[in-house]
Design a protein around this nucleic acid. Sequence first.
DNA 1: AGCGCCATGTAAGTGGTTACATGATTGT
DNA 2: ACAATCATGTAACCACTTACATGGCGCT
Lengths: 180, 180
Amino acid sequence: MDVRTVCLGMLTDGAASGYDLKKNFESTFGHFFAAGYGSIYPALSSLCDQGLVTCEHIPQDGKPDRKVYEITSDGMAFLLTALENPAPCHKVRSEFLATMCFAHLMPSAQIETVLDNRIEECAHYMKMISDIEASCMHDWPPGMRFVAGFGKAMIDAMKIYVEENRHLFREETHTTTATG
Amino acid sequence: MDVRTVCLGMLTDGAASGYDLKKNFESTFGHFFAAGYGSIYPALSSLCDQGLVTCEHIPQDGKPDRKVYEITSDGMAFLLTALENPAPCHKVRSEFLATMCFAHLMPSAQIETVLDNRIEECAHYMKMISDIEASCMHDWPPGMRFVAGFGKAMIDAMKIYVEENRHLFREETHTTTATG
DNA sequence: AGCGCCATGTAAGTGGTTACATGATTGT
DNA sequence: ACAATCATGTAACCACTTACATGGCGCT
């Protein structure tokens, strides 16, 4: 599933412009599926070329035409097929964990900073999801509620793990070396 | 931080071939930093060109020369600089969550399958990390232990969340609609 | 006077994936 | 016999990122 398919999915919730979808990507989808204008606009053009969406040009003064996209029945069929993947992936790419693997090469102040910043980012995402949840929860389908809760659960687990295990990087003194 | 830097980091643990590093990527680093031969071999060549690693050609019969790479002091300096990033990212790209966002468009049997497969993959990763942990824990620096524990904590949180919230996709009957 | 929001897009670059190409040895 | 392990690499491709290009409106 690529940005195109996710855009298509978002359009099932109603017609929208690329700009609108970007806000969606920043808020609701931000923590698990990032996308910038550089992928959204070309995605919408390509969907339009293939007849999976239609595009209405709404003139505005002083601004470029607002282009409002709407999903077609072909688009809906395409989306439904894409959703048939029985084992969609969930990938993590973590420079944070890669860095921590080599923590023994770093000064401890540096390690502490990295850990502090990670906790801070957890707080940031947590607030983000809670805000969105508070404002949209009522009109969300169960899937969206599941996804928001998922995000919160994972961020919470991350924060707690980091807080409870950062001590591993301090006293390397008198560990009983225990293997198990 | 890219594959090159991670390869360089792995070489601080001792000289190794591209093939050796791949096994490392599959096991220990697999759940948060994937890489295939197509990125590892070019990465090692480029590191060699820049003098960040040296390469020893060890002839073998019936097989291509085994090329064993070793980190240089320049390489070490480069790595240390790369590790100075105070806020290394931790990115998630989840087709799973994207799919769940549109669950209301899917037949419920399909949703169940996706959820079952996710739980299965959790079990797979959990086993993988536990196995590696069991065999290497003793000679691991604290960072590696932190990372393995992190992986387990996250996978556990994921599995529990999915199990405890999949009911959201069943009875849509008589929810009291409560917002908060 | 300056920032942020609205609103669109392109072009070049990056970084990684997938498929291909080769081939002996060892285990079942 | 057949599969897996060992062992290397390239070339084409893909998807996304970053930087650039444009510009009025409304708020402070």
